Computed example of a mutant assay.
Amino acid sequence: MYNTVIFDLDGTLLNTIDDLADAVKYIQRKYGYPVHSVDDVRRHVGNGLKLLMVRSLPLGEEDPNFEKVFEEFKEYYQGHCQIKTREYPGIMELLKELKERNIKMAIVSNKAQAATSELNKFYFSDYIQIAIGENEAAGIKKKPAPDSVNHAIKLLNARKSEAIYVGDSEVDRETAKNSELPCVSCSWGFRERELLESLNPMAIIDKPEELLAIIDGSK
């Protein structure tokens, strides 16, 4: 049995792809870059906002205006991160049940700390108090490094032997491996099930409630 769950945010708890794509397309249109589709953006997410912007510009970080464009992108997304974003069906019911079972929970994300905190406060604050976003300035390396997961485990006063990691991507699978935690991959997120199967996680779930059987050891 497990008593601690570390959740990824984008593609796991929240469907954030439309707001992310709108922010990317806003920048691309404003500065005259080729405009990407939502599917393009979906393929580019998972490693934080900076790498998303690198992947969204023809010259990437070599663009002479990159820093200016990236700062404007972050500012725009911060102000528009709750327009189309919604929790996935069944997530709120899952979190309520986990809280009733006294399961410890935290979020770890490569999204900027400000946006991670804002989204958690808006959607999940009744259930999750610890939400760790990108904060490399403080010496906490972003995923797939284990730093943010280890920090969450420490703040929860939890044990790794009693914790699992839940995410939707190859970055999450690698994060779990680097953190020495079992990985549960969710198929409703930003990656195809075929890819998830190739990563060999402990389990793949198709609905949030399926996590309960894994936590209590019946699956």
Results as ranks from 00 to 15, higher is better:
148 S>Y: 07
17 I>W: 06
25 K>L: 00
144 P>L: 10
121 K>Q: 13
87 E>C: 01
56 S>W: 05
181 L>D: 14
42 R>A: 10
136 E>R: 13
100 E>C: 08
77 Y>C: 08
81 C>I: 03
92 M>L: 14
100 E>D: 14
77 Y>S: 09
161 S>G: 15
184 V>Y: 06
120 N>Y: 04
186 C>M: 09
216 D>A: 02
22 D>H: 06
187 S>Y: 03
167 G>N: 06
61 E>I: 11
216 D>Q: 12
10 D>K: 04
45 V>Q: 01
125 S>D: 15
5 V>N: 11
120 N>L: 03
155 L>E: 13
217 G>R: 03
70 F>S: 05
121 K>S: 14
95 L>G: 07
198 S>C: 09
101 R>N: 14
6 I>A: 09
59 L>Q: 15
214 I>N: 00
49 L>H: 00
24 V>H: 02
95 L>W: 02
15 N>D: 15
158 A>H: 04
148 S>P: 05
76 Y>I: 00
157 N>W: 00
126 D>L: 08
96 K>F: 11
201 P>M: 10
29 R>D: 06
202 M>S: 14
11 G>V: 01
125 S>N: 14
30 K>F: 07
134 E>K: 07
115 A>T: 13
157 N>G: 11
139 G>M: 08
67 E>V: 09
216 D>Y: 08
123 Y>N: 03
218 S>W: 02
87 E>Y: 02
170 E>D: 15
13 L>T: 04
211 L>A: 10
41 V>Q: 06
156 L>C: 08
38 V>N: 01
200 N>P: 04
174 E>Y: 05
172 D>P: 13
213 A>F: 12
